[in-house]
Structure formats: C-alpha cells, structure tokens
Design a protein around this nucleic acid. Structure first.
Lengths: 158, 158
DNA sequence: ATGTCTGCAAAGTGTTTGCAAAACA
DNA sequence: TGTTTTGCAAACACTTTGCAGACAT
C-alpha cells in the first residue's frame, strides 16, 4: 500500500505534479477499492468520509490526471458513467470485464486472453494495437445458481 | 434496402409498434450510413435534411426503440457520446471495432474472433455469455503509411 | 374514441470550466 | 514570488421526460 502510494508519488513528481493531500486521499480510496469499479461520484463520497472538505471537481481533476499518467483506466460500461479502475502495476494489457446483466456485478479477468486474436488483427487488418477493451455481458456464476426470480433486464447497452 | 426496411417494419409490427414516417426516415439514414458510427445528433442532422420537421427527441426515442429491438447496437467509444450501429442481419455476435488513436477512424471487424476465448470464459469463469464488446485502440493502416506528422494524441479514454 | 406517437421546451445527469483564494516551492 | 492546486458555482453537453396536440386504427 505505502509502496504503491510512493511509486505514484514519484510518477507524479517526474512530471512535476504534486501528491497533494486531496490527491493522496483519492489514490488511497482507489487502492482500498481495487476490486470495485467506482464512478467519480463513488470516489468522491468515499474520499469525503476522510477528507470532508474535498470538492467533486478536484476528484474529477485527480482522476483525469491519474488517467493521463496511466495509473488508472477510465472505463465505460454503457450506463452513462465513467468508472475508474486502478492499473495493475506492470500490466501492459488492460484486463477484461464480465458484466452481469442480472445483478450488475462486474468481475475482472486478469489473464490476457487476446494474444492470438491480436496477432490476427495486426496481421490481417494491418492495425497497430496499443490497447484493447473487452467486456462480456451475460449471467454471472452467482446468478446462475440463484433460482431465477423476477428480473429487471439490464441491457448490454453500451 | 427496401427489403431491409420491410423486415424492420415487420419486426416493429410484431411488437405492435408502427413504422411512422419519422422512424422510417431514421432507419433509412442508418442504412445509408452503415459504415459510419453515428451519434444521435449526427442521425438527427441527417434525418432533418429529408424531414426537417423532425425533433431531436423523436430521434432519441427511435434509436432507443431500435436498440431494444436489437436492430441497432448502442456503442460508446468513451468520447461521451452514444453511437448507433446497425446490426448485420442474422449476426448473433456484435462485431468488433478498431479505433485509430491518430485520426479517430473507426473500422469494423465483422468476423467473430472470440469463439475460443468465449469458450474459455464460459468454462473457467462459469459465466453465461450473452454479448460482448471488443474494441482495439491503436494506429490504423492508413496512418501507419502516412509520414508521422504532428499528432494530437487521442486517448483510449473509454 | 382510444391509444400511439410527435415536437417542443423543460428538466436531468454526469462532467468540465472560470475564478479567486489557498498552498506550495 | 510565481506556479500549482483547490473549492465553489456556473456552465456544458448529451439525453430523457412531461405534456398537449396530431395521427392512426
């Protein structure tokens, strides 16, 4: 935890940004919720618990900054909100997501399953791949077990 | 063209919706711009050329309806706008996209490259896949040929 | 007549920006 | 001191909604 903060601090400094208390609080929230896919508002509310004086705009600006530094990835599951996902250190490929259409849960797949596909795309389409986004929409293992109850359909809207 | 309109008409009727002139004009615009990835506003402006009295809200409502009927797919490349992509008839899998970070062009891959990957995900993660979204961000073949000139970086922001 | 659909304007939502004050180097 | 960062409020961009009138069956 502290080491990761430290590394992010250095990364900021290397571009002459500062790790202000507000930014640190934001980063901490992200670290403590690595598994969730928080929206800016979510982050704001969580940061506010520790540092009530922070403003929403600051959170947005911090998240934007972290996105530029590639500390976080900004993702969008099509529900109209941007979510922010901490990059695994050293991960050169963005991980994949499983979005449950029943309960809305978002699980992550850390393994890179696209190696072969990317080779094909680079060769056949002559496209130099820098990054990818892969999301599956379907029913998660938890909901498959549950006896199907009345469900509000969640559209794979994105 | 006329056949496709006709089929969409039947699909609407089967759910007791009507293919009103406004809806038809909207569908025609989509058919005429199948390769583009139009935003609601884009569609609105194009429809307006033929049917100037149409309202933006109607276009939104029509696109929403077409999305529910799975005539179009609503997609989001992370630039804050929803785009609408006509489904290929009979295509059960959503096609993939190549987004160029240099010129912003969006190309499509119709082939389904994810068959094997989906098998793995269904088995290993016990996730019942209904749909997927796969987008590659990188440099398109056109920009690779161009002598690299001053480029505005387009973030894989989504 | 009954219900669907439309256009307009207003409201909503998530995000960004302008600015003066505060913090920092 | 000069630069960066912050909080607030206002501005923004895209999308949705309420409603009265138009249309269709």
């Amino acid at each position: 935890m502290e080491q990761r903060i430290d590394r992010i601090k250095k990364q900021l400094h290397s571009q002459s940004y500062k790790l202000t208390p507000q930014r640190e609080a934001t980063v901490r929230v992200l670290l403590e919720h690595e598994k969730d896919h928080l929206s800016a508002e979510d982050v704001y509310l969580l940061v506010k618990e520790k540092a009530p004086e922070i403003g929403l705009a600051t959170v947005y600006r911090t998240l934007e900054l972290l996105n530029e530094l590639e500390v976080v990835d900004k993702i969008n599951f099509g529900d109209g909100v941007s979510r922010y996902d901490l990059r695994k250190e050293g991960a050169e490929h963005f991980h994949h997501h499983l979005v449950c259409m029943e309960c809305g849960a978002v699980d992550e797949i850390q393994e890179d399953l696209l190696g072969d596909v990317e080779k094909i795309v680079e060769k056949e389409w002559n496209f130099k791949i820098k990054d990818h986004r892969l999301t599956f929409h379907g029913i998660c293992h938890r909901c498959q077990e549950k006896p199907a109850k009345k469900k509000e359909k969640v559209n794979p809207t994105q």
